[in-house]
Amino acid sequence: MSEITKAILEARESGGCAFVPYIMAGDGGLGRLKEDLLFLQEAGATAVELGIPFSDPAADGPVIQEAGLRALEAGTTLKAVIEEVKAIGDEVHIPIIFMTYLNPILSYGMAGFANDCQEAGIAGVIVPDVPFEESAPLEDCLRMNGIDLIRLIPLSAPEERIRKIAEAAEGFIYAVTVDGITGVRDSFGGTTDGRLERLKEIADIPVLAGFGISSPEHVRDFGRTADGVIVGSAIVDALHRGDKEPIKELIGSAKDIAVPAE
């Protein structure tokens, strides 16, 4: 079983749901990456989604866009992030998942990227601008190195497409709860009505909900149906402001979830 799947199932079995925070590598300089990862691990994160900055992040909202620009201004590159993660080593034992747009991978070289990720201990990779139809070359390179390609499934997708992607998915399924980009939202407008439950039925690996999840209430709501949540903009914003309390509270809210009886 994949390292990521295992970590999520453990979180589920201990009475809560998995919590995967997203942080932007190099926001505030790569020097603080180790400290941030150790803090998130200590606070109880199940895994960490580590964003690689890109000049043209077309799937991200303003908070992550700005974090990416700050990271690029600090000179952050994919290569430097891989080296830093490798240097941090075993002290961080929760799985690390890269989230990067395709072009930095192409520039690095796909095979070399997969190999170096494996050496750095990266457990999974999310690439938001690689849909199912374009995923084969990347999936092959990652699979040879035992790394999961984490696939996104919009809840709005037709069921036939959901089934096709779910069948190919590894690690967990990243359920995109709203049509749109990353970022904080107050209301979900009932868009998931029954669709998240339906995806759970279809999937034979864990399903994590993401996009727009920003409050402990969201975490508890989604945590009842999904196996866990991914929180990005709210975490990035809090880290940037230097306020770790909301992060502890968010992670804490995932520890005790009243899961409906099956």
């Binding site: 077309a58 799937a59 395709l102 849909p131 139809e133 696939r151 996104l152 919009p154 997708a157 497409r161």
Partner: peptide, 9 residues
Amino acid sequence: RFVPETLMP
């Protein structure tokens, strides 16, 4: 077609 999944349909 290097776009987010949401655009594929």
